[in-house]
Design a protein around this nucleic acid. Sequence first.
DNA 1: CGTGTTTGACCAGCGC
DNA 2: GCGCTGGTCAAACACG
Length: 943
Amino acid sequence: MSSKKKRAAAIDLSVEAERRRPEEGGDGGDREASDGAAAAAEEDGDVKQKQREGPKEETGGEEEKVVEVVADQGEDGSNEEIKYRTQQGDMMEEDKQPAAAANVDDDGGDSDGAGASAEEKHMVTEATGGEGDDGGDSRTAMAQDELSEMQEEMERMKEENRMLRRVVDKTVRDYYELQMKLAAYQQQPAAADEPKETEVFLSLGATTAAGGSGGGGFPEAKSKEQAAWRRRSVGSDDSDDGKEDLGLSLSLGTSSSYDDDQKAVEARPHDVDGAAAAAMIVGSRPAPRGYALLESSKVQGGAAPAAGELSAAGGITSQSVNPANRKTRVSVRVRCQGPTMNDGCQWRKYGQKVAKGNPCPRAYYRCTVAPGCPVRKQVQRCLEDMSILVTTYEGTHNHPLPVGATAMASTTSAAATFMLLSSTTSSSSVSDAAAAAAGVSTAPSSSYLSPYLLNSASPLLMPGATVGGGGGMQHLNLFGNSPSSSSLLAPQAPGSSKYPWSPNHPPLAGAGGNKRPFWSAGGDGDKPAPAALAENVGAVMSDPNKFSAAINNFMGKDGESSSGKSSTFAWTRSMDRTATPASVPAPARPRREPVSEEMARSARARRHVARQLRSAPYPIPSYRWKAMKESNRKKTLPAAQKMDWEDANCSVCMEYPHNAVLLLCSSHDKGCRPYMCGTSHRHSNCLDQFKKAYTKGALLEELPANTVGTNLDSTPLITGEKNESVDLACPLCRGKVKGWTIVEPARSYLNGKRRTCMQDGCSFVGTYKELRKHVKSEHPLAKPREVDPILEQKWRLLEIERERQDALSTITATMGRAIVFGDYVLDLEDEDDLDDVESDEDDNANGHETDNTRRMLMFLMRQVARHHQNQRLQNAIGTTGGAEDNYAVSSGANATTPYHYPLEGDDEDDLVMAGGGSTGMVRPERRRRRRRRNRERLFLGLH
DNA sequence: CGTGTTTGACCAGCGC
DNA sequence: GCGCTGGTCAAACACG
Ligand SMILES: [Zn+2]
């Protein structure tokens, strides 16, 4: 429905736009009107315009437009920018009133205004001509000429596209076959030796540590243990067997990925690829405790808990392991020195043991989110690098995942994917691994697009809903799991994690896609999960083949899967809410199993059950919450809030936020409560870093940003809607941050929580008060952390790649079988359809937008990406409702300057002082990926 | 008192 | 069959 339209809008840039304009009178209504205005100015310049157009179009001939686009993209950023703006302008106008908007974004502020892209002018001109008819015949004639020309072009393009499609198809097929073969090949050996355990380790960031690590280390050391586990699991879960026959191609990449890791660690300057990026993240994160290094290893093909936390930190290592097995195991490496790193799930420790080869005790946990949940996890410190926690998840949850977990899972996968992208290894393996980590089910089929769409998992993208590989899918229903370091290292957060709001309430309505930054700690279970998650999900579309399923699973709502292609989700359903042993994979050990059954009846069992029920981490099951949410929200709000901050975790440093400020994001009303440290540079300085990152991003990307100020800071000053400020994205929901506020009770409560000192090398842990003392005495010279320019640059590259991937995901989601070639997107509609369409088009000379769009096989991805953004924006606006726009923003004097680090004073330590209260509104427009990027940047900034 | 952790005991594969 | 190991149990504790 709207999707098509939207898509069309997004794509209209090139041929389409031009073509359509003349004919479509009505559709463009607003736009045309506004355009018209613009046109008016240039009106007399018709000729001029044409001339301008002329060169571009004529030169290129048929391919012109496309070519043009490409060229722009490739070489001249400005052009691209312009186009984008144009488009944006349209969007804006659509949303608002034509007149007003004009200045801020579009032409007004930006110098490029003059440059209204050729195309746009085109359009304008034509439109004008058509309507006003001032130009007279000559003009009309020209227009017609153009039109015909364009049509011709279109034809050619179609041809070309067809050819391309074929090629692509073939390539894909080949690829797929290869993959299968590979998988088969891999499986064979495995089968021969051992049951089906091929493990591949894709470790990105953590490599170093991971390397040869003994206990925690994956590769070598664990083989035996793993084997044991597998055995067990295999034996127990026969039920799953059938499903996982297909091997995942994951294994291949291993070694290579490993190398990548190394690279990452070394942080080679020029590596742009994912690995490098990963490295950056990892490497850069020297600091602070909080950033986790994640390594997720997906093991047995089956279902695995997603590695949630992983994402929390930046580094990611993912190990993927054999597909053939029935149970899925996911190992995650998280650098976590700090106290709690929750993965969003509730775990109960049931044992601890010192395993051979690693003096660090291994802790055993079982999922307590739902009474019968069979999921377990092991947490152990890596021998080589004690700061790394290796968490291995096993089993499939029999319940919907808590929001936090979900978010994390997706995040994780995204991160993993991301990292893996660049690796030379087969892309498919990468993505699969990522998916696995995320708890996504991976199927061989999923690899279909992989070669082209690697990143389906980009953090932002939530899978739409399509699922590709039916049969062989494996379900990793995990969710985020993070190693809760509890017993091992850190003080554990109170076991109670609460998810005040549930994740996917709003059925993926396609709202603004927000997601948790992969570094965000999704962990803290209680943290407000991204309220907007659901929204985001909708907004974000992802690689249908893989992620949607996963996500849906995470969400725990299969049924609501946005796209309705739920076939694959069936299993999920059955599992959900069913605590029955039957639905759940049998316990690992046959022997124990009976026992557990008995337990149910025994007094102890009763006790246990009671406990579990009572202790359910999530006071309200997400699915129930959904229902209750609406009705009770108001009443429970206070309580909920309390809960919010009780386990609040700063998304930047991943610890208890001191001098906490509550960011007011677009999902605030939905329960999103992103607390962040408002402390100075002597401490975590998170808020400042956060803003700084955004600001920087803005500066870099936002052209002559008149509005360089950061939102938070500048907002207060700029109250008008016209202000263009950098958008800050909520670290939890990715919704727009409109400001922040201070919740006194929360602050005082959180200040009493102990957290680590952020100074490098310092392991001091204490409450805010203690920390202040500590810092004063121990780190009197503390300075703001610096950002390594090289790393930053790398990061930027990474971001670009990411953006691209986002676009890809969007494309994939929107168009079923799109494939991306460089900047081109090929919509692999069924041949038949295509043909039909073509004929249709012929009939309709112009074709409808939709058709054209749909058939438009090639267009710039960027466009899509932008469209995507805009869409999100719109959604956000719509969803959020303008009503909430009035968030109070406290403006601490010191908070006003992004880069300003208050130098002293204990009291002044707080960047944010209570009391600030000016209000500001930030324009919703221009929600860009920047958000995420910036967020990511934080990493760089933090250490 | 409820809830979660700790920890020694127990059990089941595995290899010798 | 024995010992080793990893994984799990469950009583004892600790905590709020
Ligand atoms: Zn569970």
